[in-house]
Amino acid sequence: MRMPDSFNKYLDETGATSRFTYRYFHELVRPRYEIRQFLRQCYLIGYTSLPLIGITGFIMGLVLTIQLRPSLISYGVESQLPVMVALAIVREIGPVITALIFAGKISSSIGAELGSMKVTEQIDAMEVSGTNPFKYLVVTRVAASTLMLPVLVMISDAISLYGSYLGVNIRGNTSLRLFFFQVFQTLQFGDVLPAFIKTFFFGFAIGIIGCYKGYNSSKGTEGVGRSANSAVVVSSLMVFIIDLIAVQITDILGLN
């Protein structure tokens, strides 16, 4: 039986990505750690993304609060606005929105960077000069994005909640202290921890897909563009797929 070409291509891609992932873990645990490069990537991936993610988080919190208010008023539970927004942000919106922004910014830049290095044969040159390009380029970036996204999500959640506090105060009136107590009265470990854990997977998926697309970029400037583009598309999709799996797992474990 002959599979359609696109399906074959999909299987081929999946297999190659899996192998790439295996190689990542393999290289990750082998000594000679590129600490300096890792820190530099953490700075570039994490710290420089903060303004973008902070602004989007702030806006999300504010907008969500304003949007939810009429529905809650119609149920007569306007006082539960902080609770609702906090749950929505911490459980779902914070991690997913942050991951999508992060994918847009980081996955594309990694894809383009590694793609152009590949096209200009810098990677081959690196290999010749005795540096392990995979370790130097891929491992550091993937590790950095895996570790930085959770940090970004936490900060983004905090900024979102502050935005929500301002949103509550646009029409209503609540003190920061009361808002804070209401939010933490509602939040449980089951809300924070699964959301926090899944962000590692988001970060890892975004990093590994960006690196894979760039590292296996086809020749020519066109290939660089394509690898950057598909890195964003696939990693964004992966974020949602991981989210789906994560919600099933937390549901099965009874953490909801």
């Binding site: 953490c42 994490g46 710290y47 903060l50 930085m148 959770p150 940090v151 970004l152 936490m154 900060i155 959640d157 905090a158």
Partner: peptide
């Protein structure tokens, strides 16, 4: 940056 995130 990391400290703030972890602290939160």
């Amino acid at each position: 940056f990391v400290t703030i995130g972890v602290l939160i």
